[in-house]
């Protein structure tokens, strides 16, 4: 079983890594990182925070573009263009297909983020060497913890991409659902907090809306927990317990989504 999963993951990775969009995304992100050196020189204070923030944002942005354009292409286009017939004519179960594809996509995301974080590290190191006084509080390990949290976030977001690909018949709808999930996942915590504060201040909200928000709060992923840019930029120590908790959160959510996707895909007819 594993040799088949590995073969599909490698096939998916190779197809993705040669996608022309990947080069564009990579070049854009590296240009953004290199540009951060020019941008920080215009600031008179907190250069380390600006540098770390720009570089982590560039990595996250590249990850998002990869997810929305390359991952969706790899998954949904398999259905659109019927390349799935070639894969499924081999002895794959539907669940193996889902997990093999996810492994390939994640391999691509992890390799891309590793490369980009290496570029970001070089940029930070270079800026640090030029403006040493501003980087006294900077902690490398906190920077890498933030990158790790991004990997967890993209692991979860790509599980959503796989899940949506199994319930829709069009790559465009998968893209729309995935972008919506990302936006909702990044903002749900703030929305809930805002509404609870307003309620505490005497705002009256209908029971239906209140119940709906509670449902969304638990169904939608809270992606803001993976955003550690601020902590990393301000050199705030991120505890091991926190990292362990978000790892479990991302893993559990991903496993549930992939199991659901496998169940749905098992019933789907490949016409």
């Amino acid at each position: 079983m594993w040799h088949r999963l590995f073969a599909l993951a490698v096939l998916t990775y190779k197809e993705g890594v040669r996608d022309r969009a990947l080069f564009g995304i990579g070049l854009f992100s590296i240009a953004l990182m290199a540009g951060s050196f020019l941008v920080v020189s215009m600031f008179m204070r907190e250069l380390s925070k600006v540098t770390v923030d720009i570089n982590l944002s560039a990595t996250a942005f590249a990850g998002l573009l990869l997810t929305f354009f390359v991952s969706i292409n790899l998954m949904a286009k398999d259905m659109d263009r019927r390349t799935i017939y070639l894969v499924m004519s081999k002895p794959f179960s539907r669940a193996q297909y889902i997990w093999g594809k996810y492994m390939g996509i994640m391999l691509l995301i992890v390799v891309a983020l590793l490369m980009l974080s290496l570029c970001a590290s070089l940029t930070i190191w270079f800026t640090k060497s030029q403006y040493q006084d501003y980087f006294k509080g900077f902690i490398w390990i906190e920077f890498y913890k933030a990158v790790y949290a991004q990997v967890l976030m993209f692991g979860l977001l790509n599980a959503f991409v796989i899940f949506y690909s199994t319930i829709t018949t069009s790559s465009f709808i998968t893209l729309l659902f995935s972008i919506s999930t990302y936006i909702a996942g990044q903002t749900i915590e703030e929305v809930v907090l805002f509404l609870k504060t307003e309620q505490a201040d005497g705002m009256v909200m209908s029971q239906g809306i209140d119940a709906l928000i509670n449902v969304f709060q638990y169904i939608l992923p809270n992606l803001s927990v993976f955003d550690l840019k601020v902590q990393s930029a301000h050199a705030i120590i991120i505890s091991r317990d926190y990292l362990f908790t978000i790892t479990c959160y991302s893993s559990a959510y991903t496993i549930v989504l992939l199991l659901l996707a496998s169940m749905i895909f098992k019933r789907r007819e490949l016409r």
């Binding site: 490698v10 096939l11 197809e15 263009r81 081999k90």
Partner: peptide, 18 residues
Amino acid sequence: YFYDNLSARELLTFSTRT
């Protein structure tokens, strides 16, 4: 329909390995 960015050899290797 094939994966655009793969070569024939890579595709055939996938077939034999699986």
